[in-house]
């Protein structure tokens, strides 16, 4: 077992965690990033065009850039591994990983983000990989000239529908609500004007059916729609279960933070999509801002320790 104690452990590997790693390195903190998915959720974005200074970049290319930037600094160790347990003794944190390592740290930044929410529809689980998918950029092109349905009414559902309209024969966008929940008017307009996309508001999918592969869906209006693909884009759930025993405050499973990215527990900071955040906006740029703030205040905290 490693006896070394780190100044800061950053849990997660998305833009918030990576930015925290860069800032911590510049503060010369002896830190470690531990996360299983390099880049996190942004890797599934087919195109990002709202990040100042970098136009039209794919999630994967963007991830490569920020990881490379982080790797420039030797102060922050990178460990691609999954955290399976975490506890606190006398203001120090003990992290155990799936690979069997035990890491000890004086402070903590939690930046584990979110994962895609499942819809809990009859047939959903059975047809995963047989027509049901949660990653439009991964699987979209496999539905060339086929009919597909996208579930959801937010930003990611509208984006998915638009992306799929370039590939599929027909895209049904099924929204439970009576209007879009995204505020992005430009996006809504593009979707509404797209001839391949049909939006069905106030509709729910009750069942996904097929023999071996997805063949159709049945709505709450007892309508049958023939489709080969069901893309589920109904929101995100925070990856916070692991931290329940740290005695920090949550709000709907998101970690509550103040403007310094401090949680309710001393020495524990949080950043990115897993937090209640500074505002409702969940973007790469806001996640990175929180990463920078959390590392800065972790550094201040360590000086008082």
């Amino acid at each position: 077992m490693e006896e070394k104690i780190f100044d800061l452990a950053i849990i997660g590997f998305g833009p918030a965690a990576i930015t925290a790693g860069i800032y911590a390195s510049r503060y010369k903190l002896n830190s470690m990033i531990i996360g299983k998915t390099k880049g996190g959720m942004i890797t599934t974005a087919h195109l990002m065009d709202n990040y100042p200074g970098i136009e039209d970049v794919s999630g994967i290319d963007f991830t490569d850039k920020i990881v490379k930037h982080l790797e420039k600094y030797k102060e922050c160790k990178i460990k691609e591994d999954e955290v399976i347990g975490i506890s606190e003794i006398d203001n120090n944190f003990f992290i155990s990983t799936k690979d069997g390592e035990n890491i000890k740290s004086k402070s903590l930044i939690i930046a584990t983000g979110t994962e895609k929410r499942k819809a809990n529809i009859k047939g959903e689980k059975e047809f995963i990989g047989k027509g049901v998918t949660y990653c439009t950029t991964c699987d979209g092109f496999l539905y060339k000239n086929k009919k597909v349905v996208v579930l959801g009414s937010g930003d990611s559902a509208f984006n998915s529908a638009l992306y799929l309209s370039n590939i599929a024969e027909k895209v049904y966008l099924i929204c439970r609500k009576c209007s879009p929940s995204t505020e992005n008017k430009n996006l809504i307009e593009k979707v509404e004007e797209n001839e391949k996309i049909e939006i069905l508001y106030e509709t729910e999918v009750e069942e996904i059916k097929g023999e071996k592969m997805v063949e159709k869906i049945i709505t709450n209006k007892k309508e049958e729609i023939e489709v080969s693909g069901v893309f589920i884009e109904i929101g995100l759930i925070p990856q916070s279960v692991l931290f329940q025993n740290l005695n920090i405050e949550f709000e709907n499973n998101f970690i509550k933070i103040n403007k310094y990215c401090e949680t309710s527990k001393k020495g524990v900071f949080a950043a990115g999509d897993i937090t209640t955040g500074f505002c409702e906006l969940k973007q790469v740029i806001t996640a990175e801002a929180m990463g920078a703030v959390s590392a800065t205040y972790a550094n201040k905290y360590l000086k008082t320790k």
């Binding site: 998915t37 995963i128 990989g129 047989k130 027509g131 049901v132 998918t133 990653c135 991964c138 699987d139 496999l142 539905y143 071996k212 592969m213 997805v214 080969s228 693909g229």
Partner: peptide
């Protein structure tokens, strides 16, 4: 019938025996 990737097919003597979908 690849409808989601990554998809691993475990094949024995030319015949698909198992599959693992996703990371």
């Amino acid at each position: 019938n690849i409808m989601s990737i990554p998809c691993l097919k475990i094949i024995k003597d030319g015949e698909v025996k198992e599959e693992i979908i996703g990371l």
